[in-house]
Computed example of a mutant assay.
Amino acid sequence: MTTMTMFDYINQEQETLTNILQMYDFSSDPSLAKMGTVTVLATGSSFNACLSAKIAFEKLADVSITIEEPYNFNHYGRLIKGTDTIIGVSQSGKSASTIDAMQNPHKSEIQRIVLTSDLTSPIAQVVNKVIDLNMGIETVGFVTKGFSATVMQLILLAIKVGVSKNQIDEQRLAELKQELLEIISNIQSVIDKSNAFFEHHENLLKLGGRFVALGYGPNWGVAKEFETKFTETVRRPSQGFELEAYMHGPYLEADWEHTLFFIETPSVNQSRSQALADYMDSYVGKILKVTTEKSSDAAVLGLDVTISEMFSPLLLIIPFQLIAYRTATVKGIDLSKRIFDDFDSVLKSKI
């Protein structure tokens, strides 16, 4: 039996997202038309995916969303008054903290929805509606395809809510579907460009001691997923920050060991990002950028795609998934070898 790798799953993303979009049922659902104030419960890469999709979801579905870490919410949290929907996200469906938070007593009129890739998993038994992530079971612990599928499913759920509220008509629905198809069609090109970018900076990344990613808007979620992926695979100090938050303290630790990644899309915040990059350039080892725009600068991975900012995480995450995998590989880290093998059983983090 062939052992799957992160790279294998990255290469499946284009086909998987295409299938998800083509198979999606956008018909109106009366239960979703009532959605207005939403609490989302997720942890790890699922949390990062929700953060990446939050702006698109709020805009397309006309809702307000709060994203909570389920363990903390279960023990210390409180639902915002007027909450009508709780959405849990667990790719495996076995996250103990998410299951506990979803099944805790709440008002009966609050609908509970879960997104999972295992429809028979424990979390599927404690909710009103189960949404299949529709990407199969990802056997590699360092999820890539699952992250992208979660972002896509949340965007499509938001569109379905908008349709159910009669806020998205047939013409607008067709436009959104076409935009998403065009985004998906660029995935292979992004993979190829990311591979070339990695190879150009391979020595820098191989020797890097501290990695930081900065993003704004929906790509704050991409920066956080960068943190998760690099921590899990490269196993060097790595963090992801919202652009402005980095300016309020974290920049003070910057030194020559730091490699800073700036994630940029055309936005009112882009000039702020560029000003920070220019300032930090003389204080860190290297500034690298990933942007949706075109670039001939060797330090900038320019994807050269036209894409709305709210959907941009679907493409901007891919370079970091690939760079994490390839950096770990050149560092000699065998990602197929399990470490902390008894962690889940001892700490009971998964059922």
Rank of each mutant, 00 (worst) to 15 (best):
M1S: 15
M4R: 10
T5N: 04
T5F: 04
T5A: 05
Q12M: 13
E13F: 01
Q14W: 03
Q14K: 13
T16E: 02
I20N: 05
F26G: 03
P30C: 08
P30S: 13
S31T: 12
G36I: 07
T37H: 11
V40G: 00
S46W: 05
N48L: 08
A53D: 07
E58D: 11
T66G: 03
E69K: 08
Y76K: 05
Y76W: 12
G77Q: 06
I80K: 14
K81A: 11
T83R: 01
T85Y: 03
T85I: 08
I86R: 07
Q91K: 05
S95E: 06
S97M: 08
I99Y: 02
P105V: 12
R112P: 02
S117N: 15
S117K: 02
S117Q: 10
D118K: 03
L119V: 12
T120V: 09
T120M: 10
I123M: 10
N128T: 02
K129D: 10
D132W: 03
D132L: 03
M135S: 14
T139N: 14
T139K: 12
V143D: 06
F147P: 00
A149L: 03
A158Q: 01
K165D: 07
Q167T: 11
L173N: 07
E179W: 01
L181T: 15
I183C: 02
I183L: 05
I183N: 00
N186A: 14
I187E: 01
Q188H: 13
V190Q: 02
I191W: 01
K193C: 10
F198W: 05
E199D: 13
E199K: 11
H201Q: 14
H201N: 14
G208A: 14
G209S: 12
R210S: 06
Y216F: 15
Y216C: 06
A223Y: 04
T228E: 07
F230S: 03
E232N: 07
E242C: 05
A245N: 14
G249W: 07
D255L: 09
D255M: 10
H258D: 15
T259Q: 13
T259G: 09
T259A: 07
F261P: 09
F262K: 00
I263S: 00
R272G: 06
S273F: 06
S273E: 08
S273N: 10
Q274T: 13
D278V: 13
S282G: 09
V290E: 02
T292I: 04
A299H: 15
V300E: 13
D304A: 15
T306F: 10
T306H: 12
S308T: 12
M310K: 12
F311T: 12
F311P: 00
L316W: 05
P319Q: 09
Q321L: 08
Y325E: 11
R326K: 15
K331D: 06
K331Y: 04
I333P: 00
F340V: 05
D341C: 09
D342S: 10
F343L: 13
D344S: 14
V346D: 11
